[in-house]
Structures are given as structure tokens and as C-alpha cells.
Write a protein that binds this DNA or RNA. Structure first.
Lengths: 189, 189
DNA sequence: AAAATACGAATGAACGTTCGTTTGTCCAAA
DNA sequence: TTTGGACAAACGAACGTTCATTCGTATTTT
């Protein structure tokens, strides 16, 4: 039944990890956030790192699945890139918490999870970069170093989870359009 | 006399803060990095947070001074923005370490430093945003939400200090040109 | 229906470890 | 002779985690 309690802990943890970072979040902090004592947490999870591990791998799983779908779509390469940018923006806004772990806190994983995560992340980047490269080969994307383009895209949306809170006046699609427009067409007139 | 020793500690600390984060860096780790014992550090610094504080405020000081210079320059607004992007790229590459503290680890500051830092940072952002706004008013920059543009620019270079190491094949000016080109003109053909 | 059993969930107390920091001592340079 | 720097030892506090126990609620046995 109560599979939900683990999820509750995970979500509260993701929120704390975002606000204070993994290392600066104590199990007692986390316990308080879910109205428990620290010791009670261990009825639901096996340890602090398990939480981080679960968040990281669930998020990477979601990104990989979404990438897979984009790859399969029968659309132009620049349209695929558009979709992927959209994916990152959407994820940053709908899943404000997990993104932090995925982007920043994964380095606190210990082996063997750390290596596994790095491999998965590297694979995601490679496949994203392939799409950029193909976009260049097909004259849909301006020539340049695909790695620089990749990382610039990936990090250009990193401010969203520091900044974006669901109660903003800006709708998500306005944000989406603006950012995609900057990355695709630049800010200069 | 030995003001230099404090600087050595500060630089080693910045490096560790970048690699492991402030909270996950112990004074014993730091001591080892400068070939001292933990207790000896206190002959040169007053505590862990002082290091972080110094890094954060020295870096913000440098950014503010550079901004000031750009503001004074008699060039177009899009050229000013170009200069500011350049500033962030250059800083990320020449001062790989401090940037982390300035971008990520400042939140571990405690009051009153935290509030002071936030204020300074906010001021920097406001003046940067003003330049973007003026660029729009003078039809040099595409219309849009200046805040979105600001944060997209600021975070689009965030990958550099995770990724860039001085021993790369890519020269800094190649990197500069590429990133500025993406932000100013976009990636689409 | 009542009694016995099993189990999930929560807790306080305590564990060993590591944290940042302080203290007192020693030595070398000035 | 003074002073600055390095160090070992020790400090209380906080860390993640374990453990024995308790409570309430199902499930099974009588």
C-alpha cells in the first residue's frame, strides 16, 4: 500500500537538495520536512544516498526515453533540436526538484553508481550531439563545434530551476518560445 | 607578512569547492591540499566561511568593476552585451575556481553576508538587464523579455567551469566566438 | 467471537565517525 | 627576546545509521 511514503520522502528530499544541496541536507532536516524522526526514515529507505541515486536515475531514465521518442520522429533535425530544448525547459518547470540532482548533485554519488550515472549521461549527450551534427550535415544548423552548441543549449536552461516557480505570471509556453527563439535565432536584430 | 599563504589557501579552497561543493569540503581536506594540518589553517584564516565569503565578494567585485567599464564605453548596446558575454566567458576560463563559489556556493553563506551578496548580485543583474533593455529600445536587440534574455545569457556559459580545463585544444578565443555567435545569431541556418 | 500472532510504522537512545574550531606547545626566523 | 607558523591533542556539536521497543492494525488460529 504505502509505496507512496517513499515517494513523499523522495520529493521532499529533492526539494531540500535543490535549496541546500545534498551534502548540506541532513537526514534530520529531511525527517522534519516529512514530519518524522530521522530514525523513522529508515523504515522506507535504505539510506541517504539511495534517495539521491533514485532521483538521479529516474530523471536520467525520463530524459533518455524522451530523447528516444524525438529520435524516432520523422521531422527535420532543427525541429528535433527544438523538441529537445522544449523537453529540457518543460522538465525544468514541471519537475523543478529532480533536475537539481540530475544536473548538480549527482557528483555526490559514490561508486558504482557514480560511474553508471556518468555513462548514462555521456550517452545522452552523445546522442544529442549526433542530432546537432546531422543538422549541420543537412544544412539546417549553422556550422560550428557541436559540443559547444550542445553544452550551451544544455546549460542555457539551467537558470530555470533556480528561478522559476509555478506561481509566475509568465506561462510556460511564453518562456519556452522565448528561450527557443534565443537559441535558434539569437538575440541580435 | 605572509599574505600570500592566505591566497594559496583561498585558491586551493576554490578548487575544492568547485569539485566537491562547499559543504562537502572539510577543513582537513583543505589542509591536505595545501600541505598543512587543519589546525594550522587557523593561523591564516578565521574560519571556513571566511574563505567562501572572500571568494564570493572578490569575484562579485571583479564583475561589478568590469560591468562599470562596459557601461562607460562609447559603443553600441549590442556591442556592450557582446563585451559582457565575453567577460563571463573569460572569467570562467581564466578564473575557473572562483566562479563556482560566485555562481553556486554563495548560498552557503550565513547572514549577514548572504543578504549582502544577494543585494550585490541583484544589482549586477539589474544593470546588465538595463543594457539589454536599452538595446531593445534602440532596435539593436530583438524584442522580448529582458529578464529571460539576461538569465539565458548568464547560464549559457555555466558549463564552462565544469568542462573547460586550460589544457584544451580549443583556444579561448575560438570558444568565445562560438558562444557569442550562438547567443547573438542563434544556431539555426 | 475471542485470542494469538504477525507486521508496518514510528520512536528515543545510542553508536561510531567526522565536522569546524580551540588550546597549548614547540621551533625557527627576525 | 619576541613573534609567527606548524602541529598534536582535544573539544562539543552534528552527522548517518542502528537498535530495541512500542503502538496500532490486520491476519490467522482457536
Amino acid at each position: 500500500m504505502n509505496r507512496s511514503k517513499k515517494k513523499v520522502i523522495q520529493i521532499a528530499a529533492a526539494k531540500l537538495f535543490r535549496d541546500r544541496g545534498y551534502a548540506a541536507t541532513s537526514m534530520r532536516d529531511l525527517a522534519e520536512a516529512v514530519h518524522l524522526k530521522a530514525s523513522s526514515l529508515y523504515n522506507h529507505i535504505s539510506g541517504k544516498e539511495e534517495i539521491l541515486k533514485d532521483i538521479c536515475f529516474e530523471t536520467s531514465q525520463r530524459f533518455l526515453e524522451a530523447l528516444e521518442e524525438v529520435e524516432k520522429k520523422d521531422i527535420s533535425y532543427s525541429e528535433k533540436i527544438r523538441h529537445l530544448i522544449q523537453l529540457h525547459i518543460q522538465t525544468a518547470m514541471t519537475d523543478v526538484t529532480s533536475i537539481t540532482a540530475f544536473n548538480d548533485e549527482w557528483r555526490h554519488l559514490s561508486e558504482p553508481h557514480l560511474s553508471t550515472f556518468k555513462t548514462i549521461r555521456k550517452e545522452y549527450e552523445n546522442r544529442f550531439r549526433d542530432i546537432i551534427q546531422q543538422g549541420m550535415d543537412n544544412h539546417q544548423i549553422r556550422n560550428g563545434d557541436p559540443t559547444i552548441i550542445l553544452y550551451t543549449i544544455l546549460s542555457s536552461v539551467r537558470w530555470l530551476y533556480d528561478w522559476y516557480r509555478p506561481d509566475r505570471v509568465l506561462t510556460s509556453s511564453e518562456l519556452e518560445d522565448s528561450i527557443i527563439n534565443i537559441l535558434m535565432s539569437g538575440i541580435a536584430k
